[in-house]
Amino acid sequence: MEWDPAKYVQFGDYRDRPFFDLTGRVHAGHPVQVVDLGCGPGNLTATLAERWPAADVVGIDSSAEMLAKAAKLAGDGQGLRFEQANIACWKPSAETDVVVSNAALQWVPGHQEMMGAWLDALRPGAWFALQVPGNFNAPSHALMRRLAGSARWAPKLEGVLRGGESVGEPADYLHILLDAGYSADAWETTYQQVLPGRDAVLEWVRGTALRPVLAALSADDAAEFEAEYAAALREAYPQTAHGTVYPFRRIFAVGCKNP
């Protein structure tokens, strides 16, 4: 599945805000190595290098398209670099003491089990922070799955989309951190996003949740699917004089490993 960095950052303010709400709860003083799992185009990873200029800051992503954009941010005397790798295969090094994953682990089946191994491998005093979307049962996603499961589309889209099993609840992540010996905090926030333009919610999901569908269909089929889906979204999220209000629930968890 290819990613479009320009489409992903189209709603930059709304996509960036959860990252800062997440990392604001990480109170590491002088980390040696900071890892951003699922760094995307790298613009947010760069803020970690600005925050901790003495650290080795590594952004990891599986998308060559995203990393091509991120590569332009590396260098300039900062310890900022990027690597192409599958998150599922990643392991922390002995120097890793801050791990951030923002809106990425929902794409990794079994990530809750992987977290346990990562948390065990990190040294005392290390920080782990994650944010995942918690809106898989929202109309935007439920309508997409319903359409994908219809008689017209099921033969071409069977197994392409995942549901609420993609992520845990805040309590799930809290207990993973606590069980691993971390002082932990977990919470959720629903952002009332006001999106501009016609078919604003469709434009939003084109950058993320809709990408597996678009990758699985031909151009003609993708256009047909989008037309049906857009009509359903307009009913679920009516446009107002102020724009289209799109509530987006996010799930956060942060922990510091106890001595």
Results as ranks from 00 to 15, higher is better:
228 E>A: 12
122 L>S: 03
219 A>R: 14
169 E>D: 07
203 E>K: 05
122 L>H: 03
196 P>Y: 00
201 V>I: 05
217 L>I: 04
43 N>M: 09
38 G>W: 00
122 L>W: 01
248 F>W: 14
242 H>W: 05
160 V>L: 09
21 D>T: 08
82 F>L: 02
39 C>F: 03
42 G>F: 04
241 A>T: 09
175 H>M: 14
185 D>E: 14
139 P>C: 07
40 G>E: 00
35 V>L: 02
33 Q>M: 01
196 P>F: 02
155 P>M: 13
148 A>P: 05
171 A>R: 15
103 A>Y: 05
176 I>D: 05
132 V>N: 00
171 A>M: 15
109 P>L: 01
22 L>E: 02
17 R>T: 10
186 A>K: 01
250 R>G: 08
208 T>W: 10
147 L>I: 13
90 W>K: 13
150 S>E: 15
47 T>Q: 08
16 D>S: 15
151 A>Q: 15
187 W>V: 05
196 P>H: 01
89 C>S: 15
87 I>A: 14
221 D>S: 07
1 M>S: 11
209 A>V: 10
248 F>G: 00
232 A>L: 15
241 A>Q: 02
116 G>L: 15
85 A>I: 06
180 A>D: 03
108 V>M: 06
175 H>C: 12
175 H>E: 15
32 V>R: 15
74 A>L: 06
98 V>T: 02
98 V>S: 02
121 A>K: 08
11 F>P: 00
6 A>W: 04
8 Y>M: 05
26 V>S: 07
208 T>Q: 03
57 V>T: 14
101 S>V: 07
19 F>G: 03
211 R>H: 00
47 T>A: 08
257 K>M: 08
164 G>I: 00
15 R>P: 07
50 E>C: 07
24 G>S: 03
125 G>M: 04
238 P>F: 01
157 L>Y: 04
204 W>C: 04
191 Y>R: 11
172 D>V: 14
77 G>Q: 13
177 L>H: 07
7 K>Y: 06
158 E>C: 09
245 V>R: 12
225 F>N: 00
193 Q>D: 10
104 A>N: 03
227 A>Y: 03
237 Y>K: 07
54 A>F: 11
219 A>M: 12
136 F>D: 06
212 P>S: 09
181 G>D: 11
258 N>C: 14
101 S>H: 06
151 A>Y: 10
54 A>M: 09
222 A>Q: 07
230 A>I: 05
184 A>G: 06
200 A>P: 00
151 A>G: 04
54 A>I: 03
132 V>I: 01
255 G>Q: 04
256 C>S: 08
6 A>F: 02
12 G>A: 11
50 E>A: 14
40 G>W: 02
210 L>I: 09
159 G>L: 11
159 G>M: 05
143 L>T: 10
38 G>P: 03
4 D>A: 04
226 E>W: 09
93 S>C: 13
12 G>I: 07
159 G>W: 08
26 V>M: 11
